[in-house]
Design a protein around this nucleic acid. Structure first.
Length: 572
RNA sequence: CGGGGUGUAGCGCAGUCCGGUAGCGCACCUGGUUUGGGACCAGGGUGUCGUAGGUUCGAAUCCUAUCACCCCGACCA
């Protein structure tokens, strides 16, 4: 493709609204443009890169035995009502009505659609196991789209759903996907950190997220360098320190604390560390008030809390509920309750002595609070988030904390959809049984952004060979007609060799061309200029290296073929 | 949803306080000279100053409403 006939609108300056590197470079290299917040269009070069990624995904999915489908994007409300997610999905799902008032959702995911499809197509155990997948657009009404294609309202996802007769089958399907995912990401040239994860709104058991470490990552990962434990913060466990030995348990006594409410204020007021307070937060779990009690220096992990309570939904209670439960204004809640309310204590509360907590009375706190003596630890659970330097749950070493972007997620769904939507097949004995499901997603655009996050330098993108829009960037520096014809000939040679090439045939100065070549970042740059016209040598340079190799014309094609193969080999 | 900010040419921005003919750099178009790391000369403005209303002789500028976009936060008592 000739630059002058192609469309590569590179930008010299950073667009002002791009804050992360991948977003900036995608805009500047002319790969994408913003349509509006959270919606991006792909220009031809960007789309080629996206294609390269989807091709890798496709190959690995096929290799793992998955079958490619294409599902409708517009999904009827009926489908979602069957599984109960018409309500559960909430505002994240974009809903629309047709002219007759029929309701639809723009699919944010396709469990229901695939379950219904399989239900109507498959009826025998002989058809299982089945892993059905698609590469398709998903719609989510994100609270706040940001970081370009990293978090957008509309994005491309590879989603796969496996159906097996039993748990052993599911385990095989799951492991096949684990392998496929590792292959996919390594072929794309990105390093991922697989971590244990919560199964979220989808419901299920076993789960692994494929994270890419990044400053702008939206998830926090806890990693153990000693034993390799990896989990995201929603899920990460940690060991609680042993109870410190105390000389003497103080008497429980009330202290006037006029208008002192927050842990920070209390710490100043009492001149004690935040960890010496017990923070008591009132939540509504599926609409019922629940009190969660944790050390003052700890964050409540709502995912863990939800799981501990067996609730579908937990949210902070409004002030009115807090006042009713604690008989006091907000800021003075504590576990020494006047009114009975379900109370969950974090595992670390047990070890606290002579703590301070709200007295469930305006402007008063209790000091000398001792768990077990002053209140019963009826319900204990892990409901706080692990943080940096907490002890690893497996080996006790200090955990490290990193931010990450999720590019893939695999998990065992179980029977949630096959039961709620009544998908059955007949087994060997002619009995109807519910297959067990697994679900496997990859954010394709996000993967592309992750590739760029991991492969760039001060000048621009440094595409890995496997996902580069084209393999070779040919820069022609020709003046006379003869020279132009000579460069054209090289261009034809490359094309005829079946090598993907972008030929910068513009009448621009060399500096402009080199700068654009660096920005766009094709893996191999070929320069045909004075060294060719004088000495018959073509210059070949890898984008990721600075060394320029001069090659004779008759050895040239062989040379770049070798480079392509070599680069490809590094990534498989 | 809360807080902060920004909307002026394709991109980056000035002009707004203090109302008086729409600007700068890059990009772009025409002609010419150049050509190995973002050339130079000459000419050219491609604009609903986000939108709507108001004040005024006169509004990018003041007032009101509204929309969009960006950043931070989203309940830890």
């Amino acid at each position: 493709m000739r630059f002058t006939r192609y469309l590569v609108p590179t930008l010299r300056e950073d667009p002002s609204d791009a804050v992360v590197m991948s977003h900036r470079l995608m805009l500047r290299a002319g790969l994408i443009r913003k349509e509006s917040a959270g919606m991006y269009l792909y220009l031809p070069l960007g789309f080629r890169a996206l294609h390269k990624i989807t091709e890798i995904v496709r190959e690995e999915m096929e290799r793992a035995g998955a079958l490619e489908f294409l599902m409708p994007e517009l999904t009827s409300a009926e489908l979602w009502k069957e599984s109960g997610r018409w309500e559960a999905m909430g505002k994240e799902m974009i809903r629309i009505k047709d002219r007759n008032g029929l309701e639809y959702a723009l699919a944010p995911t396709h469990e229901e659609a695939f379950t219904a499809a399989v239900r109507s197509i498959v009826s025998s155990y002989r058809d299982l196991p089945l892993n059905a997948y698609q590469i398709n657009t998903k719609f989510r009404d994100e609270i706040r789209p940001r970081y370009g294609v990293m978090r957008s309202k509309e994005f491309i996802m590879k989603d796969a759903y496996s159906f097996d007769m039993d748990e052993e089958g599911l385990e095989r399907s799951y492991q096949a996907m684990r392998t496929a995912y590792r292959n996919i990401f390594s072929r794309c040239g990105i390093e991922t950190i697989p971590v244990e994860a919560d199964t979220g709104a989808m419901g299920g058991s076993n789960s692994e997220e494929f994270m890419v470490a990044s400053e702008v990552g939206e998830e926090v990962l806890l990693l153990c360098a000693a034993c390799g434990y990896k989990a995201n913060q929603e899920r990460a466990e940690y060991r609680r320190p042993q109870a410190a030995h105390v000389e003497k348990m103080e008497e429980l006594h009330a202290v006037d604390t006029p208008n002192v409410k927050t842990i920070d204020e209390l710490a100043v007021f009492f001149d004690r560390g935040a960890d010496e307070f017990l923070k008591s937060i009132v939540y509504l779990a599926d609409g019922r008030p629940v009190m969660a009690v944790v050390p003052g220096d700890r964050e409540i992990n709502e995912v863990k809390l939800k799981n501990a309570l067996g609730a579908l939904e937990v949210e902070l209670a409004p002030d009115s509920v807090v006042e009713e439960v604690t008989s006091a204004p907000v800021g003075f809640a504590g576990p020494i309750a006047k009114k009975p309310v379900r109370t969950v204590f974090d595992l670390s509360v047990r070890a606290k002595h002579n703590a301070i907590t709200g007295a469930n009375e305006k402007d008063r706190h209790y000091a000398g609070v001792n768990p077990g003596r002053d209140f019963a630890l009826n319900e204990e659970a892990d409901i706080t988030s692990a943080i940096k330097s907490d002890e690893c749950p497996k080996c006790g070493a200090a955990l490290d904390e990193r931010k990450g972007i999720e590019v893939g997620h695999i998990f065992k769904l179980g029977y949630k959809y096959t039961k709620s939507m009544n998908l059955t097949v007949l087994d060997e004995n002619g009995r109807a049984v519910h297959p067990i499901m697994g679900c496997y997603g990859i954010g394709v655009n996000r993967t592309m952004a992750a590739v760029i996050e991991q492969h760039n330098d001060g000048r621009g993108i440094v595409w890995p060979m496997t996902v580069a829009p084209v393999q070779v960037h040919l820069v022609g520096i020709a003046k006379s007609d003869d020279e132009i014809a000579a460069v054209d000939e090289i261009y034809d040679m490359i094309m005829n060799a079946g090598i993907e090439v972008l030929f910068d045939d513009r009448k621009a100065s060399p500096g402009v061309k080199f700068a654009d070549a660096d920005l766009i970042g094709m893996p191999i740059r070929v320069t045909v200029g004075k060294s060719f016209f004088k000495d018959d040598e073509i210059e070949v340079k890898l984008r990721r290296e600075s060394e320029v190799v001069r090659v004779a014309k008759n050895a040239f094609i062989r040379h770049i073929r070798g480079l392509i193969e070599e680069e490809w080999g590094r990534l498989s």
